[in-house]
Design a protein around this nucleic acid. Structure first.
Lengths: 223, 223
DNA sequence: AAAAAAGTTGACCGTTTTGTCAACTTCTAT
DNA sequence: ATAGAAGTTGACAAAACGGTCAACTTTTTT
């Protein structure tokens, strides 16, 4: 008997803590959410069909509705957690580090996250593309404040002469867009790179190209 | 009577040449396609409802079906033209120019196009996100060959010592992602920049930040 | 001015889709 | 072992949706 196990009404198990949470509810909710992220990331809220989510989760449709009362509820549950990776990678941008290593770490972390969580990354892109109407006000406030905070770090680096004068917020956008592109627009990236699938080598060269270009620039330096 | 005016079966008036093409068919097809680009760009093929397209175009649903025989036909008509901006901006990347001015021109052109054609840009993003299944093989081949061709220009610049050694294809991805971001993810860009709407000044600073960073890099140069 | 062609429209039909439910099975606590 | 709670399921109802159409109006041709 592992504690009192009443009813579990809340839906916040998109990332199970341990390994095999054996409670049936937790397991099935997880199955549904994983499938939902995949489907929503391709089709968006209105384009996704719940039978598709049901099939992808291996559960019959009726069972999906046993855990969630509507498609929108599933959708909201999937996007509720999307902001986390934002801060996480952002932790690398801290005032007491050297810009070069901080930015390189940031790029590598963000690229790696996007690669390992391609569906979530696409889902986020899809949600923003549609106008971000389902992101909670708090989530957006949070992103805004984290961005502002980290922008100050860049400004401090500039003030300390460790970096060329640059607009911190546009710089972040440059880094976000580049690091998310490979996961969001994989089909396009594959075409451009003339491969049929992005492999580790491609991601490594992406990281190298981004950091090298952003940090050192393209123009040859006068010796 | 301005010449022979038979029937116009082809659907290629997404960008009317003159101003007020007065033929009813042309005008209405245009209305529908414009509305469709807007709706598809937010919801995708499956998520878009044709009543929504009808409403946005100001025409009743039945009338929409007088000009198009299915939703997919409308969708295909909207994406058929998306590749054009690709080459157009790419024209700036030519071997006989200096890298610095070529890349700056490219960034500004692409940014400006994305701003002025935000819905098309989002539609393209949406289509790629969903796997690019409706882009014709020829369109993708075309993009592949143009990319390869322009990659050679970069390689030549590198060989001539005009640029630091860099992977041309990943560099293009870096430029694409940055220049498209503002139109595709406007909601996010607005949050990051703390504005409620992107204005000319924001686009100018974006262009400046991208070119400055990509060309010169962030790290201070040894004098 | 009359006829033909093109365009307009709301009502309609079959299908898909969301969401419900009652009968059933499995699990868990005692 | 048993009772009650939790979970499962296919069948079903209601609504939304894609697409059709016949009657109608407007435009163009002669």
């Amino acid at each position: 008997m592992a504690g009192s196990l009443k009813r579990n009404d809340s839906i916040d198990e998109i990332a199970a803590p341990g390994v095999s949470e054996d409670r049936i509810r937790a397991r099935n909710v997880q199955k549904i959410l994983s499938a939902a992220v995949e489907v929503f990331s391709r089709k968006g809220l209105d384009g996704a069909r719940i039978v598709e989510i049901a099939k992808a989760s291996g559960l019959p449709k009726g069972n999906v509705y046993y855990y969630f009362s509507s498609k929108e509820e599933i959708y909201n549950a999937t996007i509720a957690h999307l902001i986390h990776s934002w801060d996480e990678a952002f932790q690398h941008i801290s005032a007491d580090r050297e810009p070069a290593v901080a930015i390189e770490d940031y790029v590598r972390t963000k690229l790696e996250y996007a690669r390992q969580n391609a569906a979530e990354t696409r889902l986020f892109a899809n949600e923003i593309l549609q106008g971000a109407g389902h992101l909670s006000g708090e989530a957006r406030d949070h992103m805004r404040s984290i961005t502002a905070e980290k922008a100050k770090v860049i400004d401090a680096w500039v003030a300390a002469g460790k970096m060329v004068k640059v607009d911190a917020r546009h710089l972040f956008i440059l880094l976000w867009s580049a690091t998310q592109f490979y996961a969001e627009f994989e089909a396009l990236a594959c075409d451009a790179l003339q491969v049929d699938q992005l492999r580790t080598a491609d991601y490594n060269l992406a990281a190298k190209t981004i950091t090298q270009t952003v940090l050192g620039g393209l123009l040859p330096r006068p010796s």
